[in-house]
Design a binder for these strands. Sequence first.
DNA 1: ATGCTCTAGTTCGATAGTCTGACCAATATA
DNA 2: TATATTGGTCAGACTATCGAACTAGAGCAT
Lengths: 149, 149
Amino acid sequence: MTSQLSVGVLMFIAARDVENRVIEAMRRAGVDDITVAQGRVAARIGPHGTRLSDLAEQAQVTKQTATALVDRLEAAGYVERVPDPRDGRARLVRFTAKGEAMLPVARAEEQQVEREWEQHLGARRMRDLRESLTLLREITDPYQEPADV
Amino acid sequence: MTSQLSVGVLMFIAARDVENRVIEAMRRAGVDDITVAQGRVAARIGPHGTRLSDLAEQAQVTKQTATALVDRLEAAGYVERVPDPRDGRARLVRFTAKGEAMLPVARAEEQQVEREWEQHLGARRMRDLRESLTLLREITDPYQEPADV
DNA sequence: ATGCTCTAGTTCGATAGTCTGACCAATATA
DNA sequence: TATATTGGTCAGACTATCGAACTAGAGCAT
């Protein structure tokens, strides 16, 4: 085992930790029927609903995968599909009241993780980390924000 | 869509990019039968072989998952299992010549990605990023290095 | 030395994730 | 109007992942 892991692996380890902790926190709060993959999609749903195709693009999975993941979230009662008034073909995926209720749990844990990271790294490093990651997103995220948000 | 993504999501996006790019580079080089999940395990195999249970622990998956992933890598000819001289129960998973041959491809792409990141961020930011990620690993990676490596 | 506990790796069964190909209907474009 | 593109779903197939269970080897206590 080389003592010097690549930045990609280090990044993966940290990201994995956050995801697992958020899922765990939700389990402890009684939301135990959401998987990591479902959570990745759910986390992309905007406040007024988001198209399935947009979710797929954000999560960088195929439409079919997004369909399947949303199917499960819908079956579990966290999201619903409603027609998109701007396009007769499209549907908006939005949170149900049940879904809205779980969001604060996830958000709180994310913030808890970030506080612990900041405690470990120091405020300056944490700030720099966020800035660097935000910059990196410019070249690592294929997703392009819809023009009319 | 909130304009401020959590650090966890930003981290995930960057890590995903690296993984996808490495897999793509290997595809272009003719290694088109390794999946991302298999690559995650393969990347943990040490120079003299690594125990399956160690791989599982590093990758934070169950032994069964690691077994299945190694099964596939073995079937594809990239790794082999040999007895571990230090423990009659254990096997070491090590690269075959075919597996050894693919490593430089993955490494080269990882380094190419890092160069591009450094170009985008600047040398200082990149150095800080690596340092912060290394520090974060202390609190985000449950894996403990074996005492006798 | 013996008995018990723990561990390495495998098998089985089941579920979730993921993709390609295909399809239909709505929308956009020439 | 005809054609191309797009949104979402279905079908089929493969991969990833986990819990449960099991066997054999190793570790530990007596």
